[in-house]
């Protein structure tokens, strides 16, 4: 697997990361090395191994359909970068 500069730019864009040129070069090399390491798994015979669904071997953890208390509005908006009345305020979309 060879990671290209274009792929790093694409993933950075999807993650809304503004990378400098030298960072793109650095991460291209790092990501390539990481994926090459993961590729080692392909050397193993895994035909008889069940894919891991979850690291904790359990299922069906569910809750009842019951309404509980929410947060107070001051707590909801406490960390918001901007607010107006009871709303979060964000740069205009649309």
């Amino acid at each position: 697997m060879k990671i290209t500069r274009g792929q790093v730019e694409h993933v950075a864009h999807l993650a809304r990361l503004a990378l400098r040129d030298e960072e793109i070069a650095e991460f291209t090399g790092q990501l390539d090395a990481i994926l090459a390491y993961v590729d080692k798994l392909n050397e193993l015979e895994t035909d008889d191994v069940e894919p891991t669904a979850h690291v904790i071997p359990m299922g069906n953890v569910v809750r009842e359909d019951a309404v509980g208390e929410g947060l107070l509005i001051e707590d909801v908006l406490a960390n918001a970068p901007g607010r107006k009345d009871r709303f979060f305020r964000v740069p205009r979309i649309l």
């Binding site: 709303f87 979060f88 305020r89 964000v90 205009r92």
Partner: peptide
């Protein structure tokens, strides 16, 4: 209005 408002 330079903002939008979000209700979650």
């Amino acid at each position: 209005d330079p903002y939008s408002y979000v209700d979650l």
